[in-house]
Design a protein around this nucleic acid. Structure first.
Lengths: 241, 241
DNA sequence: CAGTGGTCTAGACCACGAA
DNA sequence: TCGTGGTCTAGACCACTGT
């Protein structure tokens, strides 16, 4: 009875439903087929269908209403749990969109005094500065300014890397994994952050001013990421006793 | 076979495990009993135990490792950030300033349709709306708009309460404690949020759009708190694997 | 190999909302 | 009343990890 479980069946089903929502098969505000219908269509048990729907719910793509049905939400935004460390690309992919990275600058330069203080490194430390735009389905969702201490870079580093996700680059090229981030959150209203075709459109941002560490508490990067307000939805679970 | 399903069994089990982690029965870094053990102990099926564990995983309290076990996460030493639930008054006091509350409005009204959807309550639910400013040493740090379902209020409620911290009010007058918050974070640029003498000065805010729950997952309040950018420092520790 | 978590099934009962 | 989603069970096979 049980099927091979390499890739969760529920994820496949969720992906199909995501695609259908994006393509207008299930328009915003519309009702998804009932769970029983989906069981028959995909030939799986109800538990599996429910797992898929729960995934869409957690991602904020649908809303379930007891005794009524499951409905497509009107506001399909990219969402991320702020308290969870993870690559921006990942969270874009998780919401059913295709992430993109456009690099505008890769420069080696000494860090500025206030950067050195925030990073806790000597004032003349050299670092790689990255300036890039992050997109979801071609739409700009964030502008990011990153600093990576030169000492961490591969010895054969050349200025044409990285090209995509910086998180992926850390893992693939440098063999380190960012597992801890210490961030400050700000609201920013400025015409001097955005660049490119949308420069005039984007003025309001959520700034994540963040230090990244690996498991050994070694500083990997200092990043200032300006998320375009409205394009990226931040959620946050706060706990007490 | 099936049990009455008023309050999810999995939540109860998760609560027990949480309490045991807090009390040191399962110390940080330690291993939780296996799923099979927990099934026997609580007398439930494995699906239910797994649901409870998934809840702890989403909250970042445990980490599962295939073929090995489920482990209690080591909590970061810094716990003074956005991810921690607490009253605004408390954090103001913690920074050595004196918190103040100025109430501008207390009204009973039906919730609006989009509020009802966010809160997950019927469309015509009555709620107490609070509108207030929160100050630190007399300086305004936040404007807050809160909704409390009428059903939660004391039977002898009159419209001259609360007067200070809403968190304190919950505990003292209603005997409930907000221990879980689900928030969305936004940047807001608007001249229509602030009121009073500083209305013209404050345009840029960090909005915490937040649902508050007690330990039984009962909705206590829906609050939209606009923090004056620069007046309140938000930090945040983000963790991964 | 044994024990762990990861996934899936088939069927059941309950609670809710609308007709 | 009927169809919906919400919860739970008992059992199964798979994949991973350490011995």
């Amino acid at each position: 009875m049980a099927t091979p479980a390499r890739r969760p069946l529920a994820d496949d089903i969720a992906a199909v439903l995501k695609a259908e929502m994006r393509d207008g098969v299930h328009p915003p505000g519309g009702r998804l087929p009932s769970e029983a219908d989906l069981c028959r269509r995909f030939g799986v048990s109800r538990a599996t269908v429910r797992s898929a729907i729960k995934e869409l719910d957690v991602l904020g793509l649908v809303r379930t209403q007891h005794g009524v049905g499951t409905f497509v939400r009107r506001r399909p935004a990219v969402r991320d749990g702020l308290e969870r460390m993870g690559s921006i690309s990942e969270s874009i992919r998780a919401s059913g969109k295709v992430p993109g990275h456009e690099y505008a600058r890769r420069t080696l330069r000494p860090v500025l005094p206030d950067e050195a203080e925030r990073m806790g490194v000597p004032a003349d430390t050299e670092a790689l500065e990255l300036r890039r735009r992050i997109t979801a389905d071609g739409e700009v969702v964030a502008y990011s300014y990153d600093l990576i201490p030169r000492g961490l870079l591969p010895s054969d580093y050349t200025l044409d890397e990285p090209n995509g996700s910086v998180f992926d680059y850390f893992e693939r090229r440098m063999g380190v994994r960012a597992t801890l981030g210490v961030a400050r959150v700000h609201a920013v209203d400025s015409a001097h952050i955005a660049w490119g075709p949308d420069a005039g459109k984007h003025r309001l941002f959520i700034l994540l001013d963040q230090l990244h560490y690996d498991t050994a508490h070694r500083l990997l990067a200092y990043s200032r990421t300006y998320f375009v307000e409205g394009a990226y939805e931040f959620s946050l679970v706060r706990t007490g006793d």
